[in-house]
């Protein structure tokens, strides 16, 4: 039992190490910063200026929404790629042909992206606060950090789901990027969810991030744990459902691929 747990932990850490080395360890600092902060930063600027144009006086609302989308995009996009790349590299047969437990193989892929997304979001917030002279005097920083970390974890659930789909569909990455774009509308990044049609509001509450972003906005206004606990619990639950769904999807695809011979087919 203990031996099995130790092996699972070692596989999890090996996977975490691999996802880091395989993707970013060889990137130059400029390439890394550009890929992590460049795109979200310019997109955030776009929304802030658009907000100013339509009469938003406080850019903080838009800044925090977009900052929280950084770990979300990391968790969703990064984890999807980490799983999809196994298929492209032809390594899936060797990984799944080993006796290693599947759960840590699967979950380990997200470790680095969660950490990376969390740190990058904090960095993004600090830069945006400096540039736009944001008033952060009310902020409950500890809870805000909890919310950012939570969003990074729960969004990886979506990554697991889309990553699993990428194992059987050539369009997996296209579906993922389309979905990331849809998140700008659905989860309350730039405007309140209440502005959405009722059907889309229901969709929004069925997704990770929505409650996390609401909780982060409350933390930004200085709210305490009692005020955000229900939102945090909801976010944890939704994220766990997606992680579980992703894992079950992964196992189902593994079994079907073994029957159909498509394990490493591109």
């Amino acid at each position: 039992m203990i031996q099995s747990l130790v092996h699972s932990l070692r596989v999890y850490l090996a996977e975490a190490w691999l996802s880091y080395h395989g993707r970013f360890a060889i990137t130059s600092p400029f390439g890394y910063i550009a890929s992590k902060l460049g795109f979200p930063f310019f997109l955030m600027l776009f929304f802030i200026f658009m907000g100013k144009f339509v009469g938003y006086t406080n850019p903080l609302y838009i800044v925090i929404g977009n900052v929280l989308l950084i770990p979300a995009a990391n968790g969703l996009g990064g984890v999807t790629l980490a799983i999809r790349d196994e298929r492209q590299w032809g390594t899936l047969s060797y990984v799944l042909g080993s006796p290693a437990p599947r759960m840590p193989i699967f979950l380990g892929r997200a470790f680095y992206y969660i950490l990376d997304g969390f740190v990058t979001a904090l960095l993004g917030l600090a830069i945006a606060a400096g540039i736009f002279h944001l008033d952060l005097s009310q902020v409950n920083f500890l809870l805000l950090m909890v919310c950012i970390f939570l969003v990074a974890v729960t969004s990886s659930g979506l990554g697991f789901l889309f990553g699993s789909i990428s194992l059987v569909s050539r369009d997996g990455w296209m579906i993922t990027t389309t979905f990331i774009s849809a998140l700008y509308i659905l989860v309350g990044v730039n405007f309140p969810i209440e502005s959405l049609p009722v059907v889309l509001q229901k969709v929004a509450y069925g997704l990770p991030l929505t409650r996390g972003i609401l909780a982060a906005r409350l933390a930004l206004d200085g709210a305490g744990w009692n005020a955000i606990s229900r939102l945090v619990a909801g976010e944890v639950l939704v994220g766990a459902i997606y992680i579980l769904a992703g894992y079950l999807c992964f196992r189902l695809i593994e079994k079907r691929s073994m029957a159909s011979g498509t394990l490493d087919a591109i």
Binding site: L18, G22, R23, W89, G90, T91, D264
Partner: peptide, 8 residues
């Protein structure tokens, strides 16, 4: 040539 992590 596939089946290994080329960046490692």
């Amino acid at each position: 040539s596939r089946g290994l992590y080329n960046r490692l």
